[in-house]
Design a protein around this nucleic acid. Sequence first.
DNA 1: CATAGGTGCGACACGCCATGTCGCATCAAG
DNA 2: CTTGATGCGACATGGCGTGTCGCACCTATG
Lengths: 324, 324
Amino acid sequence: MGAKGGEGMEAVIFTLELLRRIPKNRKVTASQLHEQLCAAGFDRDLRTVQRQLEALSEQFGIERDDRSKPYGYRWRSDAKGFCLPMLTEQQSVLLALAEQQLRNLLPAGLMKSMQGFFEQARYNLVPEESRAQGKDWLSKVRSVSETQPLLPPKIAPGVFEEVSNALYEDRWLRVCYENKSGRRTTGEVMPLGLAQKGPRLYLACRYRDYDDDRTLALQRITSAKALTLRFDRPPEFDLRRFDAEGQFGLGSQGRIRLRFRVRKGAGAHLLETPLSTDQEVREVGDELEVTATVEDTFELEKWLLGFGADISEIRKEPAAELPS
Amino acid sequence: MGAKGGEGMEAVIFTLELLRRIPKNRKVTASQLHEQLCAAGFDRDLRTVQRQLEALSEQFGIERDDRSKPYGYRWRSDAKGFCLPMLTEQQSVLLALAEQQLRNLLPAGLMKSMQGFFEQARYNLVPEESRAQGKDWLSKVRSVSETQPLLPPKIAPGVFEEVSNALYEDRWLRVCYENKSGRRTTGEVMPLGLAQKGPRLYLACRYRDYDDDRTLALQRITSAKALTLRFDRPPEFDLRRFDAEGQFGLGSQGRIRLRFRVRKGAGAHLLETPLSTDQEVREVGDELEVTATVEDTFELEKWLLGFGADISEIRKEPAAELPS
DNA sequence: CATAGGTGCGACACGCCATGTCGCATCAAG
DNA sequence: CTTGATGCGACATGGCGTGTCGCACCTATG
């Protein structure tokens, strides 16, 4: 496939191509791999693939299931994996931030599954010498909650796995759901999208034989099972719009022109992190008069209330509706 | 080195070890690589390393700087890199969430540098067949802000790069800082830690010849330059404690026993995402009486105010001080 | 139970290519 | 200029990746 290029190395390329075709969960047979590789332009004998596989399984963490005769190969779950360095120092720091963010927001069970990935990243994706110097950059970085931190909700074991699998592969999902009033229902849904709001996870989905989209909180799903049957994603569904329509929160009442006064000390940070690109701030005595075009949401209301006595003269006027 | 293990494959292992020792930014000479590899137990001739390097530079995206005689090798900045698959579907979804989180919180410039990484992750770390089916999981996942979203602050170009490099490698940093009142100062600091609070980034550091630790907001650093001089990290510095002491926020007044009443509709989510592990909730008419042990912070105050008229009878009592 | 096709695997011969070594040209430093 | 380091072309060697064959075993289908 690779047309021309450097000579030599072909063995390495071939091995790499073989390695990347070995899945992590599902098992694959030697002939399947042989077929894939031939299709990709690597004309090797089936026997060669077998030999490679055997050698690989010792060197790397690949396990072979030889209970049934077409042997099945896959990565050991604790396999080290391998990555070429591609992170700079800055990216490493940002990745550490992302890890902390997730750690604060996700249930412990979910985080544990990502732990391995981040350790990989730390080990493999970082230049050799920086790593060797014992520079533990997780201890140099911290994500501080901007709001009162709440504990992540308990999600029933296995629910997230099934939901994300089904979402990922467009498969029908049978769920047991317990709504706020405690009523339990069972049904089959098309998983359409997953949203995270603080520590809570919501699944956007559509019930079988219905046309409207619903939102299910993951912590209220008592059990879930991905079916093998696939579905066609409704092309008109757009998670961005679904969110914009306020299906995940308490909804937006539309864009408004917001105006208020706030004591300088309490609102000074708006100069650095403005509400919107068109925000205007005028100094009036020891107060700031702020004007900005924003979505009129429940979060906005809470945010305004949070200023307590430091804020006054809040006014909302309808703004020209613009497509975001 | 590798004791025993699968025979064969040694060429592949060797090449992989060589590849991972090529840095992304800095350049490295063939002899340096040769030295490293010998130390790691790969006794090859220097000539072999040179030949490998030459072949590799064509197959992979490695560039050679042959302007000066000890040639310098490094990865091309647009190099694809390479990763073995190690993400399951669930992890893929979580990674997409992390990406969205960062995207919402970081200045566009910083995010752009991570973009490449996430694209890599999407391409290389995901099982072959899932990827081929055109399952665009970024459109299936969304991170919704829990609070009123503010725009990320502008960070002067190059500042984050220098700061993170210096932080990462324990090097002195010369900064130009403009504090809230507009006073500009210049100084040299030890970068000790980086904290993210919503869209804002803060650097914990210590000025030269001083013993106390300061906090600098990255958006107020007008310019920064990492010096070559290294420093020894003060062993007593602990970012966790630094944060716990409230250096990044407006600080905690200590742990308290918090008690309040809230209308059922407004506070029902506390049943799923409690304030603390010892939270107790009692139903009183159409209100909930909540009790929990929390840190008495500025964020807590804002959070309580955010309930507006739905909350009442807020009481705070000192709690037994416990090491967190 | 019988047959046929698929699959794993040991063995063997071939030949490519990675490897070590030598020598020369070139460049940087003193 | 001298000296040492580096890059590189050339060459001989042999290790090992490769294809091929054959046999044994499993599975599937009748």
